[in-house]
Design a binder for these strands. Structure first.
Lengths: 204, 204
DNA sequence: GTCTATAGTTCGATAGAC
DNA sequence: GTCTATCGAACTATAGAC
């Protein structure tokens, strides 16, 4: 996620990202970030005035990274089912590479929604184009009739939830075996696609 | 959730539950809990030796409340589809009454999984009986063939995820209109049931 | 059991030398 | 720009009177 140049500012951003994502805003310590960056606390405050400002910089970077424009996939000239498969693939790729993102983002959004809201407005994320693609697919009979909001929440939930609940799943279902857990998460790529497709395909 | 007797200990437990669930272990302040209980900080330490111990008491209560034995529903003599509907109904009832639980539990489980693990072992939650019911339904042809782990994760995710992501959904999809958001969450009872049933019913 | 007062720590932030 | 040293606020925990 980080193009790691060697300037001090970049080292700080990289270290802060790692610590904030793992511990959250409240759990992270400026000292730990300084250690991870190989510098001292005073220098953190020299580059970013406060812990809040440093966190905002990292959170902004992560949100714009994790909310990419799936819209583009959905605009392509493909059967709707194929678009859904591509969207799920794209998201699960990203999540398998960055499994901590769901837990981190959900935690911070519940702690202080306003920070997230400002970012959404700044970047102009909109659901309407996605809803419209779904509506057209329904009109063409490629998709069962349902509220687009529910379909989006269902698909995102099926992709994202297991990562947010990873410790629970690993312990309860796989006795904390890391390999079995990892295999399960990789299986979900096919599992989620097939589950969603069965749920949304009209019966001929 | 609390049988509110009037003893000081009960007032503490009630106040601590409210503050911990809303702010989390790291965000909660002993002073705030004391204020909410109408007492002072010293008395918190008199009843519970430390913030950690107080938190453990609350977390234990909440986990055993939120992980009820759905096993019983699944053991009943009903078609598998009906069992699934009942299980979803039961869980969404609980979540609609206690919408903060998913965010709280996910946050704390990611912060310190070991506390949760001890509780699971103490209460002896097991998935095997649920898996077995699913396996039998597959053998009878009432359920499409799939790994039981995925079905459980899918159903739980569809129920739980929207609550953990409520601020995001409310803002992005409903412009923070509380009534529209509430209506959406109530619709999910039927939505989730139909979505799951379509996804798991064998094609005749 | 309940209170006031305060000790003891942790941590974000800043002063000031180099 | 980078460091050491330290301040000051916030917070958990305890001492001791009633």
């Amino acid at each position: 996620m980080n193009a790691a140049k060697d300037t001090t500012e970049d080292k700080i951003l990289e270290a802060a990202t790692q610590v904030f994502v793992q511990k959250g805003m409240e759990g992270a310590r400026m000292q730990e970030i300084a250690d991870a960056a190989g510098i001292n606390k005073a220098l953190l405050h020299y580059y970013f005035r406060s812990k809040d400002k440093l966190f905002d910089a990292i959170f902004s970077k992560i949100v714009s990274f994790a909310f990419p424009k799936i819209g583009q996939i959905l605009q392509a000239e493909l059967p709707f089912v194929d678009k859904v498969e591509q969207a799920i693939d794209t998201y699960l790729d990203l999540l398998l590479k960055h499994p901590y993102l769901p837990g981190f983002i959900l935690k911070e959004v519940n702690r202080d929604p306003s920070v997230f809201f400002k970012l959404v407005m700044k970047h102009g994320f909109k659901l309407e184009p996605i809803f419209q693609v779904m509506q057209e697919a329904m009109d063409r009979g490629e998709l069962i009739r349902m509220k687009p909001e529910h379909l989006v929440v269902n698909v995102v939930g099926l992709c994202v939830f297991p990562f947010a609940a990873k410790p629970v799943i690993s312990f309860v279902a796989f006795n904390e075996d890391p390999e079995a857990t990892q295999a399960f998460f990789e299986e979900r790529r096919e599992e989620v696609k097939q589950f969603v497709i069965r749920a949304i395909q009209p019966i001929n």
